[in-house]
Write a protein that binds this DNA or RNA. Structure first.
Lengths: 219, 219
DNA sequence: GGTAAACACGAGCGACCGCTCGCGTTTCTC
DNA sequence: GAGAAACGCGAGCGGTCGCTCGTGTTTACC
């Protein structure tokens, strides 16, 4: 109870001014983490391996991240932010009113492209083995995407009950992740084939709920 | 090179006569392993935890399994065998000729029921983190189911090219696993809702390929 | 009943894990 | 250029892991 000086040890402790070198190291470490997570999964990935891959010592890694979990959280947040910044535009009202086939192209193609370039994202999204608090951030990451899908379905078909809409969004996202796994597991022509299969599957699933035709713009 | 006595140390080494007590212990250990794998995933599950859950010492566990990997392999094989014995009947020519909606019910309902009763099966099926040789058995387990689906699709629509059929079987299985994950993650009414959504999704995906009507019996 | 094998135990070995700490180097600020 | 702070290192700490081994108990077979 003798900590009444100036700084609490809990959150918002101290902003720790980073130098340009530090920011560079952080990026190196996150890139290395993405590679190692992707290769071994979250649990099997070791912080020493991440540091080695980044070309720094274990001590240096812990200059920038308080623990292993924070690395995964930060990586997930950055990837999620980057995906929404770069391709988040796809969840627009204009796209929602397109014919279903075009809507799927407009949404899926950028998503797939991003995930092919950043396979660690899917790894984090479906890392079911994970200790305690990482699961919360994991869920947050999940919901962040889920909400976009939910919203798009709501715009497309406002008559759907909230429960049904949630189920549909949840299932659609699960189907997407499943297809994405197949896509990332193949290359070249095989990959393209699975992209087509995924679109077929989502079309077949969503057509009865969302309709295949474009919906007219609201007055 | 001086091992020309009688028994090679490699495969088919010695059959080690098991007593009834031993068989019972093996079952206890596999049940415990299923529970622990399911709770923590393959990598995070510790052999000591499995032994503890089975109520035996670590040493006893290693009387029956040479290593951790062998536990997962044996568990996977037993579950797979039991599923095929109990519900493998669903992949019959008679079922293949049913109307699609009834075909899906006939195939999915037993599968879902089995996986709800044995959630460790899905855990093993999608344990992507795994060292070396477990992946081979993992793939074998995978293919064992995949082949059934492939065969069923072949009976239903013989005109499909082998490549397209393989893609369809692969994607259908991936979609099934995705839906199964949602189903196992919920209970009661929510679970039933996701069962319905999964059937809808697979119906929408397979209808254009397999046709919705029953196919006539072959002369 | 005697003996060999199967079963059971649990302390603990070696390896690796996440992470720390003491100390040296680089960079910023005045 | 002096002081502070950020950066960087790597041996190694405490802990857990998969797994072993010496020893004792139970069971099968004659």
């Amino acid at each position: 109870m003798s900590e009444s000086k100036a700084d609490q040890p809990d959150e918002t402790a101290r902003p720790r001014r980073r130098q340009a070198r530090g920011e560079r190291r952080i990026q190196q470490l996150l890139d290395a983490a993405a590679s190692v997570f992707c290769r071994a999964g979250y649990t099997s990935a070791s912080t020493n391996a991440i540091a080695r891959e980044a070309g720094v010592s274990p001590g240096t890694l812990y200059q920038f991240f308080p623990n292993k979990e924070a690395i995964a959280v930060e990586l997930g947040e950055r990837l999620n932010r980057r995906m929404l910044e770069t391709h988040g535009v796809v969840f627009t009202v204009e796209n929602a009113t397109l014919p279903l086939r075009e809507l799927l192209d407009a949404v899926l193609d950028p998503m797939i492209e991003f995930n092919c370039a950043n396979p660690a994202f899917l790894t984090l999204l479906q890392s079911s083995d994970a200790p305690g608090h990482f699961l919360e951030e994991h869920a947050a990451l999940h919901d962040s995407i889920q909400d976009r899908i939910n919203e798009l379905i709501g715009v497309r078909n406002p008559d759907l009950s909230p429960e049904r809409r949630a189920h549909t969004a949840n299932m659609a996202f699960a189907l997407f992740k499943a297809g994405l796994g197949l896509i990332l597991g193949h290359e070249g022509a095989e990959r393209e084939a699975y992209v087509a299969e995924l679109k077929t599957a989502l079309y077949g699933y969503l057509a009865p709920v969302l309709g295949t035709e474009g919906v007219p713009a609201r007055p």
